[in-house]
């Protein structure tokens, strides 16, 4: 296993139908910590995460991992804002990523049970994933993303529609994943959550990185007027 980091992004941009979704972006991510991507609606948070993960088409610039691309793709995972549930049981959903990499059925199932326990779905193993509630779906998606022990996990507003209890559970899972050495890059709307989890903040505005810094200094004294206004709760364009 060679090191994946630093991730270097140079002038990367995604367009759809002539409209620039995000970019050009220059960014360097180091191996440690939790990066929070914040910004108003339409600022390009989702697009930035998809760009970094490599599932958005890059129209200009480049995204370079320290290891080769195929290996980098295998060692990262993504949790979508609306989690995609495979039409299978909870257990089979969790086992799915392992089965893809050739893990035998029995080991995959045992692992799936361990992870179901970790994300609090231990008693839902045989339930169809599509019958889960929003919070349970999000936890299942998290477990499924973490089961391959990725080096990087991208999360697109993982708590957007969760109640307090589910959010607390999800944050606990995220913290323990980060402690176990998974690099987290996530977007959020919830400034409380950003303050609780972030070690580093990227503030997006109009598809570009407008401000950026370590969490403690960013929240106390942002460099730009727009970031200050955003943190105050004003509407920023």
């Amino acid at each position: 296993m060679s090191a994946m980091f630093p991730l270097i992004v140079e002038g990367a941009m995604t367009r759809r139908g002539g409209k620039v979704l995000v970019g050009p972006v220059d960014l360097r991510l180091e191996a440690e910590g939790i990066t929070m991507v914040i910004g108003p609606n339409g600022a390009g948070k989702t697009s930035l995460l998809r760009l970094l993960h490599g599932i958005a088409r890059i129209s200009a610039g480049q995204v370079t991992w320290a290891c080769d691309e195929g290996e980098a793709r295998r060692r990262q995972a993504f949790v979508f804002q609306t989690p995609v549930m495979l039409r299978r049981s909870v257990r089979d959903n969790l086992a799915y990523p392992l089965r893809l990499t050739g893990v035998d059925r029995k080991t995959a199932r045992t692992q799936a049970e361990v992870w179901a326990e970790k994300v609090g779905l231990g008693d839902a193993l045989t339930r169809p994933a599509t019958a889960l509630s929003g919070g349970e779906r999000q936890k299942l998606a998290l477990g499924r993303a973490l089961i391959r022990a990725p080096d990087v996990l991208f999360l697109d507003e993982p708590c957007a529609s969760l109640d307090g209890r589910a959010m607390r559970d999800v944050e606990a899972i995220l913290r323990s994943a980060a402690e176990a050495g998974t690099r987290l890059v996530m977007s959020t709307h919830d400034m409380g959550q950003a303050r609780r989890l972030a070690s580093e903040v990227v503030f997006l505005l109009g598809g570009k990185i407008h401000d950026r810094g370590p969490a403690d200094t960013f929240f106390d004294s942002p460099n730009t007027a727009q970031a200050r206004a955003f943190l105050r709760g004003d509407i920023v364009e």
């Binding site: 993960h53 599932i55 995972a77 993504f78 979508f80 495979l86 039409r87 299978r88 799915y96 893809l100």
Partner: peptide
């Protein structure tokens, strides 16, 4: 089904054969 699964299966770095197998099964 593919439009449901598209993002997830692309993100999981699946091969074409694995995608087809998943769709056929689910």
């Amino acid at each position: 089904l593919w439009s449901d699964y598209h993002d997830l299966l692309i993100s999981m770095n699946t091969t074409h054969a694995q995608r087809m197998k998943t769709l056929l099964w689910d």
